[in-house]
Amino acid sequence: MLTLTCPNCGVAADETELAPGGEAHLKRFGPGASDDDFEAYMFARANPKGIHFERWRHAYGCGKWFLAARCTATLEVFATYPAQSAAPPEAVLAAIRARRPGWEGRS
């Protein structure tokens, strides 16, 4: 039962107020895309034991989506940040590195 702070409204929301949305920072592939790219977009999901980037919607709250960087093993939350981010912002990466020195970044 996580608590995540919604960056859109500032509420520290109970997991039961949130709806999960899977892996963050996926790039959409539409018509014209290769089979491999489309397969990766639709089905190939990271499932790391460790640092992960996820989509969450503050469904029972302000209704807005946001992204979270957290550790799937310890459930430590490094940051939550706007859904309108194509990649993790530098401040988020810095927060992760501060807690996990030597982290190599997303593979």
Binding site: R55, R57, A59, W65, A83, Q84
Partner: peptide
């Protein structure tokens, strides 16, 4: 409604 908001907020913002 959630599906619409997802695309509006996260893809075509």
């Amino acid at each position: 409604h959630g599906w619409m908001e997802d695309w509006l907020q996260c893809e075509w913002w």
